[in-house]
Amino acid sequence: MLISNLELIPGRRIVEHLGLVQGSSVRAKHVGRDIMAGLKNIFGGELKGYTELLQESREEAMQRLREQAEAVGANAVLNVRFSTSSVAQGAAEIYVYGTAVVLE
């Protein structure tokens, strides 16, 4: 499965468009990380725990995107976009969407 944020793949023709596919994942931070983050709010700097958490959650969202694309019979997802929003205090949603296509 080719996942790309380009709109077309040079040298490969798009045979069929299959519409939008998406994947999302909402993750909450656990208490230990929240305490560390509270300390970091005083000292400043990178919150490594959160960076990892969001990376994991992005992986999961992409996995769902991939599953959905496979289900509709695509062999590539083009023009992939990411979006992050904090839906509630202490939880963030990662959303991935793209166009499922069949490449020759």
């Binding site: 790309s4 040298g11 983050a37 700097g45 919150l47 960076t51 990376q55 992005r58």
Partner: peptide
Amino acid sequence: PTEPQHHQALVIGSTVISVDY
């Protein structure tokens, strides 16, 4: 560019950073 033919991969980088007091 269409020439030469390239392989491609999605690359991602992210950072969470906090402001100090």
